[in-house]
């Protein structure tokens, strides 16, 4: 090991033609550029340019049908005093807390169960199944299952003598219902990610814990959780950011109602842009959402120290 290292460094010292190396670096650069071009085209055309243009539009009054006119910070000032915007932030946050909270805990439980009791591909496949169904279909099916008069869930509640529940029609319950529908869909996917993280934890630390006489809960708390942290952090960042952008389930079921109970920020952006043709205002909302999401992701990364693992010491 040390010998080869010394050899290469020796080589480097006496390398006679630096131009050759420069040439090689150039050719690597050229190859790199070649490989990066397809991805960059996509990035520039579908992300960077729309983002820049969106930022510009957020400072304009733009109804799509007439050219945009620059109005400075007027959109942002209007948003500041828009009660629907503040409400949309509130209900979005409710959704994120319910969705990510329940989903992460349940997925963690499921992942631990999988790791402990089964290696079966069939079980893993079945757990993934809901994730393979399109969002809109999932939402529609639950919407119908939950129907007050014709849905099987309320029929069952009625059968057992319980009061019927307007899962999507009750102002206090609707957002929770939507959060749970999406937990149902994403649970398997999330738990598979966590399961992969669990598998990466070396067996010997568990053996050591066992030798030390640690119980099941203690092992989970002091071994599994800390060692799973980087994966957990990744999963949390992805699910929180994704969850903030809840749209399709709402669009298919409640359409933002009852009243404003499920008018989440992304749905409000859509309505402002495509229903009310207020693209300037909608762009400003989108910029605000982007800033919030960037902040949340950064904060999570910092708090959870996502880029370091307790395994490397």
């Amino acid at each position: 090991m040390t010998i080869t290292e010394r050899k290469t460094s020796l080589h480097r010292d006496i390398a006679p033609q630096p131009t050759v190396r420069k040439g090689r670096r150039d050719s690597q650069l050229r190859a790199a550029i070649l490989f990066l071009i397809p991805a960059s085209i996509g990035f520039v055309v579908f992300f960077a340019w729309p983002a820049v243009r969106g930022l510009y539009l957020s400072f304009t009054d733009y109804n799509l049908l007439r050219p945009p006119t620059f109005i400075g910070f007027d959109n942002y000032l209007a948003i500041w005093s828009d009660p629907v915007f503040w409400n949309s932030l509130k209900v979005t946050l409710q959704y994120v807390v319910m969705n990510v909270g329940v989903q992460t805990v349940a997925a963690l439980g499921l992942a631990v169960l999988m790791q402990r009791f089964t290696r079966s591909m069939v079980v893993r496949g079945v757990i993934m199944l809901p994730y393979l169904i399109a969002n809109v279909i999932v939402a529609l099916v639950w919407f119908w299952l939950c129907d007050y008069n014709l849905g099987i869930i309320n029929a069952a509640l009625d059968f057992f003598g319980l009061d019927k529940v307007g899962f999507f029609g009750n102002q206090d319950i609707a957002m929770g219902t939507i959060a749970m529908v999406n937990v149902w869909r994403h649970l398997g996917y999330t738990s598979l990610l966590l399961f992969a993280g669990l598998q990466a934890i070396p067996k010997d630390v568990y053996e050591a814990a066992e030798v030390d006489g640690a119980g099941e809960w203690r092992v989970f708390r002091s071994v599994t959780l800390p060692l799973l942290r980087p994966v957990l952090a990744f999963v949390l960042v992805v699910t929180v950011v994704g969850s903030f952008q809840i749209f399709d389930t709402i669009a298919v079921t409640t359409g933002g109602g009852p009243i404003d109970a499920t008018r989440a920020i992304n749905y409000y952006i859509y309505q402002r842009a495509f229903e009310r043709l207020d693209f300037g205002y909608a762009s400003a909302l989108a910029v605000i959402l982007m800033i919030i999401l960037a902040g949340v992701a950064l904060l999570q990364n910092k708090l959870l120290r996502a880029n370091e693992s307790d395994l490397e010491r």
Binding site: F143, D147, Y148
Partner: peptide, 10 residues
């Protein structure tokens, strides 16, 4: 007539 809650759905 169903309440708003009871008519949201199908």
């Amino acid at each position: 007539m169903p309440s708003f809650e009871a008519q949201t759905g199908i």
